[in-house]
Design a protein around this nucleic acid. Sequence first.
DNA 1: TGACATCTACGAATAACTTCGTATATTATC
DNA 2: GATAATATACGAAGTTATTCGTAGATGTCA
Lengths: 129, 129
Amino acid sequence: MSSESTPPRPTDAELAILRVLWDRGASTVRDVHEALESTQSTGYTTVLKLMQIMHAKGLVTRDDANKAHVYRPAVEEEAIQRNLIESLLDRAFQGSAEQLVLRALSIKPSTPEELAAIRALLDKLEDTP
Amino acid sequence: MSSESTPPRPTDAELAILRVLWDRGASTVRDVHEALESTQSTGYTTVLKLMQIMHAKGLVTRDDANKAHVYRPAVEEEAIQRNLIESLLDRAFQGSAEQLVLRALSIKPSTPEELAAIRALLDKLEDTP
DNA sequence: TGACATCTACGAATAACTTCGTATATTATC
DNA sequence: GATAATATACGAAGTTATTCGTAGATGTCA
């Protein structure tokens, strides 16, 4: 039954747009463009074109009832994150999630709360193998 | 003093070659090509060209004393891994290393030993803030 | 030395991603 | 309804990554 269609891999520009959509929810091109303006400096039509491409790829859905089309993410943030991590595991960590985790934890100083959250997950993983 | 020159970002093909060099140590183009053959099916001159580009970029060093040049990695595996993780953090996790760790841990079932290693690192992080 | 194998150098084709200008359609406003 | 504002659609250029064929240099060995 499970037809697990491999979620498409977003490019960098696409990922930036997806993040806006995940954060804001349904948005017009203008919304996304303004949200990205603080960080990047891409033209309006560039964002438009990218979102059209993403629509063709099935990364977003689109409601064109009104003049300004409204876009929504068609992929789950968690699924994309999982994909990106698996790709990174294959390419740079020989598949070892633990190496990646160790490396990630040593990059940034974490707050006690964050460390506690990770510890809690470890507990759960050890309990239910 | 620290002139922390940002390590260059390897592409996918470059990363595959770097992994061979990290594993095997000093290698000729032929060595790398043969090592990659099991996984990919890239032509010899393709690998050659890539390694020449990597040399120009400073990703590898080269000893051309003999006819077959000998290449060595010029960047540390750990530094590249750190870079890739930081890039992924910025692009997909809003900088939250914890989210990435939690996601990574939930992907693959880990052995008790691996979980213990992570736990040990957590202990260390909590002890020395 | 001469024939053969092996290597590097180089140019160039292909594909993917990103960018934006221009044209055209739609909506709002006076 | 005319004008301005705003939207989409489309084509195309620039960049980067990947690929490989061919030419020329270098080494091997009988």
